[in-house]
Simulated scan of single mutants.
Amino acid sequence: MVQISKPQSARTSRESAAPSPAPTSADVARLAGVSRATVSYVLNNTSAVRISEPTRRRVHEAAKELGYVPHAAARSLRAGHTRIVLMPSPSVPAGPLYNAFFNDLQWALSRLDYTVVQYGSVSLRGDDAARAWAELRPVAVLTPPDLGAEGVEVLRRSGARAVITLGPERAEGAHALLMDHREVGRSAGAHLVERGRRRIGVVLPTEHGLDHFARPRLDGVRDAVLGTGAEVFELPLTYDEESAGQLVPEIVELGLDAVFAYNDEYAMLLMRALQDAGVGIPEETAVVGADDLMLGRLLRPRLSTVRIELPSGQELAALVDRLVRAPGAVTESHDMLRARVVARESS
Rank of each mutant, 00 (worst) to 15 (best):
G159T: 13
I164N: 01
L178G: 03
G159R: 03
G148E: 06
V154C: 07
R161A: 11
L177K: 02
S158H: 11
E172I: 10
I164P: 01
E169C: 02
L177S: 03
P168I: 02
T165G: 08
G173P: 13
E150V: 14
G173V: 12
P145K: 01
L147C: 09
L142P: 04
A174G: 12
E172D: 15
R170Q: 14
H175E: 12
V141C: 12
A174M: 10
T143W: 01
P168T: 05
D146T: 07
P144G: 09
V154G: 00
A176D: 08
G173M: 13
L136D: 00
P145F: 07
R170G: 15
G167D: 05
V139M: 00
V139R: 00
E169D: 14
P168L: 03
R137D: 04
R137Q: 15
V152W: 10
A162H: 09
R137I: 05
A162M: 10
R156L: 11
G173D: 12
A160M: 11
R156I: 10
A174Y: 05
R161C: 02
G151V: 07
G151C: 05
V152K: 13
P168C: 02
A162K: 07
H175L: 02
T165H: 11
P145H: 12
L155A: 10
G151Q: 07
I164F: 08
E150S: 15
T143K: 00
T143G: 02
G148R: 07
A171L: 08
L142N: 02
R170N: 09
G159W: 04
L136P: 01
L166R: 13
E150Y: 06
G173W: 13
P145G: 00
S158K: 08
V163E: 00
A140H: 01
V152N: 11
H175R: 05
V152L: 10
L178P: 00
T165V: 14
A174S: 13
T165Y: 10
L155C: 11
A149N: 01
A149G: 00
L166E: 10
L136R: 14
P145V: 03
G148Y: 06
A149S: 15
A171C: 10
L147Y: 06
M179T: 14
A174T: 10
V154L: 12
V152S: 10
D146F: 03
V154D: 07
A176H: 15
L155M: 11
L136K: 08
M179H: 09
V139E: 02
P138A: 07
E169I: 08
V152A: 13
P138W: 03
P138S: 08
E153W: 06
M179W: 00
E153N: 14
A162G: 04
